[in-house]
Simulated scan of single mutants.
Amino acid sequence: MLPAVHRLTTPSDFRTTVRRGVRISRRTMVVHAHLSDVPPTRVGFVVSKSVGNAVVRNRVKRRLRHLARPGVETSPPVSVVVRALPAAASRPAELPGDFASAWSEALERLGVRP
């Protein structure tokens, strides 16, 4: 579980990150990242019904939270929204690689290094 200080919670935070940040697409997810003025790094997850039923969506969210935890602790202050695509449920073996490459590319495009 991510600590509360590392979670995006308000709709305005999600909206700002998605509209003003960079977008990185992978087969299983889309990562939106935006530079934040205030530390720490915060992450939010969007898993729609197109991914699957409630059990599948929660499983995908748990996997994504697990993958985000190391990046949250080491990266500079950014806001990140991870939107899972339907392939995230059917291809769980691809999630770690897709997440790591999207996270590092997002930080590169923002001009920050972990």
Rank of each mutant, 00 (worst) to 15 (best):
G71H: 07
S25H: 13
A4H: 03
A106T: 04
V5K: 01
R65V: 02
P39Y: 10
H66N: 00
G97V: 13
P11C: 13
D13W: 01
V112A: 13
A68P: 02
R65H: 00
S90Y: 06
S12A: 15
T74F: 03
N58M: 04
A88F: 01
K61C: 10
V46E: 02
T10H: 09
E94W: 13
V60T: 04
R62K: 05
L67D: 01
P77G: 04
N58L: 00
A100Q: 06
A106P: 05
P96A: 09
V31D: 08
R42F: 03
T16Q: 12
F99G: 00
V72F: 00
M29F: 10
K61N: 04
E105D: 15
R109M: 14
H66V: 00
L85R: 10
R19K: 13
R91M: 11
A102I: 05
R65P: 03
A89T: 11
A93K: 12
T74Y: 10
V38G: 09
E108D: 13
L64F: 07
N53C: 10
P3L: 06
A68E: 03
E105K: 12
D13N: 12
R20Q: 14
R42A: 00
R113H: 14
V51C: 04
V80M: 05
A89Y: 11
A87M: 11
A54E: 08
A4F: 07
A87F: 12
E105H: 12
E108F: 15
E73M: 01
T16E: 14
L67K: 02
D37L: 11
A33K: 03
A102V: 02
E108Q: 15
L95A: 13
L85I: 10
R20T: 11
V80G: 01
T74M: 13
V60I: 02
L35V: 13
V30Q: 15
P96Y: 13
L107V: 09
P39L: 03
R59E: 07
V38I: 14
R59V: 09
S79P: 05
V60F: 04
V72Q: 01
S90I: 15
E105S: 14
V31P: 02
E73N: 01
V72A: 01
H32L: 07
H32W: 10
A93L: 09
S79W: 11
P39C: 11
S90V: 15
A89K: 04
L110I: 03
V38A: 08
N53P: 05
R19T: 06
R23D: 04
W103V: 08
P3N: 01
T10A: 08
R62H: 02
N53F: 04
R62I: 10
R62V: 04
V38T: 15
L110G: 11
R27I: 12
V46W: 06
P11L: 08
L2V: 06
S50Q: 09
D98L: 02
G44N: 11
A93D: 12
F14T: 04
P114R: 12
T41H: 02
R15T: 14
D98Q: 11
F99K: 01
T16S: 15
V81P: 05
V51E: 01
A100M: 05
H34W: 13
V22G: 13
M1I: 03
V72M: 03
S90Q: 10
R113Q: 07
S101C: 08
G21L: 07
P86Q: 14
R91C: 14
W103K: 00
S104E: 14
R109D: 05
R23M: 06
